[in-house]
Design a protein around this nucleic acid. Sequence first.
DNA 1: CGGCAATTGTTGTCGTCAACAACAATCTTC
DNA 2: GAAGATTGTTGTTGACGACAACAATTGCCG
Lengths: 168, 168
Amino acid sequence: MTASAARTEPRPAPRKRAGNGAARPNDADEIGLDALVGHAGYAVRRFQIWIFQDFIKTLGEVDIKPTQYSVLTVIGANPGLSQMAVAKRLGIERARLVHLLDSLEQRKLVKRVKSKADRRSHALHLTAPGETALAKFKRLAAEHERHVVEKIGKENRERLLQILAGFT
Amino acid sequence: MTASAARTEPRPAPRKRAGNGAARPNDADEIGLDALVGHAGYAVRRFQIWIFQDFIKTLGEVDIKPTQYSVLTVIGANPGLSQMAVAKRLGIERARLVHLLDSLEQRKLVKRVKSKADRRSHALHLTAPGETALAKFKRLAAEHERHVVEKIGKENRERLLQILAGFT
DNA sequence: CGGCAATTGTTGTCGTCAACAACAATCTTC
DNA sequence: GAAGATTGTTGTTGACGACAACAATTGCCG
């Protein structure tokens, strides 16, 4: 079944082997990606999966996920923001932010204060334990960032941040 | 968004507390991200959202999404692969691939051929219309890639691909 | 001043997606 | 041949984004 009978088709030319550089050892299998390599979106997606998994693992002991961390960071840096402002800044739906804040408020990290200027909106603040907790989260996030450096190198990480600076 | 949405901030000086200690609500765009800038994961996530949206929009007329495109590309470059092999190569669950292939098979782009060597598995092939369709998808994907170049620049895109080459 | 549109937070639905668990059919190994 | 692993499949769960609808409140405009 190996040599002759396996292929049901005469195999229409093994596609161009994209000879950029030299013979690179294909790690896992010998399955070619063809046009997929060279697509920025594919590379970015794979990298994003890796980096999020590492973040979640590194911040696992405090049970904080990337989105929660971003919300806490923005509130910590800009106390008194409304939910609308936070949602817009982070690019998340305000409907989604409701649940995120419900969770963070239950954990006593964030409090919603009724705004006097606009009684429709809530002013968001970190609680006292929220402040100290965020400090710890930031230490763990820095550790995660160190993992990124180990993975792609210090200069590459900085170049990456520079290239993507326009999207933050 | 388009080109000039970039903040014209000349240098990356670490912004401590944006001096909005007063209770005055911020003017929308002036919300500081504090520690969030400098996190690779955040930048990558935002970029990935942008790039996927552009891909979906550019390939909208043929109704092909990034994951579908990756599946078609891998099958096209490696005819006869099993579902397990495709799933492993692309890092998607084999349970998820079932639905993806159901959809692609309904659209007559892909066919599952019962393998004679291993009757548990299916050998995946593009149909004849699937081949021509994929050619068109690749042209559209190339157009999408041109949008990426317009957004971040030619050298930056290549540097990005180089940095993230290890994740493909 | 009064009414009407817009905004804010909230709830709910829908569709996508990843992560599992369970299962039948089949292969592999002993 | 029996036990265990693999492959495709189905189903469930939870996170997530996109929307729509709603009450309370604010802003606007005649």
